[in-house]
Design a protein around this nucleic acid. Structure first.
Length: 480
RNA sequence: GGCCCCAUCGUCUAGUGGCCUAGGACAUCACCCUCUCAAGGUGGAGACACGGGUUCGAAUCCCGUUGGGGCUGCCA
């Protein structure tokens, strides 16, 4: 039977990198085995879900190329069935009514010092009302063994498990119930999810066995718990402190293939000698049972490096296309949030950018770095980096001579990159300067910065008149 | 507190009893290349948490210790 896996996020906020990893590993397993990848939205907690969050999940998955074969299904739509099954479970004695409030439980816990439900109502035959929750009666003795694909057998003694709530007092079915029912109904064969769910697994196994009694028996899926993704403090990635929104990585200019490649390296590694591997290779080589056991630090520095490799591998036309949202958003398919080009849209010149692009392509690690690297091409008065201006022009007595000489030479020389290179080297030499010294004030005068793409190509693209204008402008500025 | 998981360079990992004086990648340092910055090249520093076993032989198997993490909701 072909495997069926599901990615079952609850729509609480933006798409989390941990979710992306879980989703990816499910997707990889499905693609590799010829199985089916199902997307199920666990939206049973109506108070917390919001429609736009669902859109966020779907668009982020699409961006990463994690296409579901089925879904999105909404768990909330199966609520009538969940309620019916809950009634059956209650009727068969697997669930019992509990009238304890959280406060009462906490008060008793204080005395016992062991958190969790104490089974107060378990044998009191409380009548089921709109004030009572339904709890699952965990066997008093024995143990439940989770046979995990990644970790092997994990044993949970029943006396360490409390009687968890399956149905709220409102009648609303909870994760512990709905999740198991849906996995059964959808014929899920492999549950691949984060390790944080491992402690709930024995409860779901118990639930599964009970469901086998009140509903048609279904074969238990295999479980695989992926190691956590952690921050530098080795704590589970948190929405509050850590940069975990997949959307923000897209907006910064990470490439989906690079992001997927990086994510795949967290807990898994390719067979070959390179860790730059395309999707097909990952699908082919991925082995669920070889996934590493230990938590992995989500290292943005390494992600960034990998992204740079992917950017450099792009063809020229691909790079142009990828760059468009950052340089010419009006003509792009989508626009990165929170950033826009520093130049007025009408000043952008596609041909000029295309000419410089190959030089930019090998200098950026994320696409979001592009605008700052080419702003001088589209800004009539590019802002000066004051520190650079002061250092190489205002406070360097060599600058004036170089700039004056450059104005003289550039006024008549050929204006292509190679000729400018030769001319600049020559004018520097005439003044007794190495090219590295001679180019510095020219670069700052023309681009406003001390670092950037190769100077002579930049000058050629800008054109003689504009270059002369800026050189003179810098000179005047230095006199002030 | 209880239950559970985990443990190779700072980080991600290779390693499945001898091929390991532990390999690669990121980060870092030095040098080379060089019009700046990148990229690239070369080289350096850098790890099997600890203690017991098992074995002719242990990073690899077992036990313990220590350390880290997760869960402990009428959230998922």
């Amino acid at each position: 039977m072909a495997p069926r896996v599901r990615f079952a996020p609850s729509p609480t906020g933006y798409f989390h990198v941990g979710s992306a990893r879980t989703s990816l590993f499910n997707w990889l397993f499905a693609r590799q085995t010829g199985g089916t990848f199902v997307l199920r939205i666990e939206d049973t907690d109506a108070e917390r879900g919001r429609p736009e969050w669902l859109d966020g999940i779907i668009s982020a998955m699409a961006w990463l190329g994690l296409d579901p074969d089925e879904g999105p299904f909404h768990q909330s739509e199966a609520e009538p069935r969940h309620r019916a099954i809950a009634d059956a479970l209650y009727g068969a004695g697997y669930l019992y009514a509990c009238e304890c409030t959280r406060e009462e439980i906490d008060a008793r816990t204080h005395e016992n010092a062991t958190p969790g439900y104490d089974g107060f109502c378990r044998d009191r035959a409380v009548t089921r009302t709109t004030q009572t929750a339904l709890r699952f009666k965990v066997p008093a003795s024995g143990e439940t063994v989770v046979d995990d694909v990644i970790r092997g057998q994990v044993v949970f003694p029943h006396d360490s498990m409390d009687d968890f709530v399956a149905v709220k007092s409102t009648g609303h079915p909870l994760f512990a119930l709905a999740n198991a029912i849906d996995d059964r109904d959808m014929g899920i064969t492999h549950v691949i999810r984060g390790e944080d769910l491992l402690p709930t697994t024995p409860k779901q196994l118990l639930m599964w066995a009970a469901l086998d009694e009140v509903d048609a028996p279904v074969e238990l899926p295999l479980f695989a718990h992926l190691p956590m993704l952690v921050n530098e403090q080795r704590k589970k990635l948190s929405k509050r402190r850590d940069p975990v929104a997949v959307e923000s990585y897209r907006d910064q200019g990470f490439l989906p293939d690079a992001f997927v490649n990086y994510l795949s390296l967290l807990g898994w590694s390719p067979n070959g000698d390179s860790e730059i591997v395309d999707r097909a290779t990952i699908v082919d080589q991925f082995r669920l049972d070889e996934v590493h056991h230990a938590p992995a630090f989500f290292d943005v520095a390494k992600l960034t490096h990998l992204n740079g490799e992917y950017i450099r591998k792009l063809s020229s036309s691909e790079f142009l296309e990828c760059a468009r949202p950052w340089v010419d958003p009006a003509k792009a398919q989508w626009t990165p949030e929170g950033t826009e080009p520093p130049w007025p849209a009408e000043h952008f010149d596609e041909a000029v950018f295309a000419e410089m692009a190959p030089l930019i392509q090998e200098r950026v690690a994320v696409l979001g770095e592009i605008p700052a690297m080419v702003d001088f091409l589209f800004l009539p008065e590019p802002p000066f980096d004051e520190a650079a201006f002061t250092k190489v022009i205002a406070n360097d007595e060599r600058a004036e001579g170089i700039l004056l000489k450059a104005i003289e030479v550039y006024g008549s020389c050929e204006f292509d990159a190679e000729a400018l290179h030769v001319a600049t080297a020559a004018l520097g030499e005439a003044l007794g300067h190495k090219l590295r010294i001679a180019q510095a004030p020219i670069r700052v005068a023309v681009t406003g910065k001390s670092v950037g793409p190769p100077l002579f190509e930049s000058l050629a693209v800008l054109g003689r008149d504009e270059v002369l204008r800026r050189l003179e402008g810098a000179l005047r500025r230095a006199e002030r």
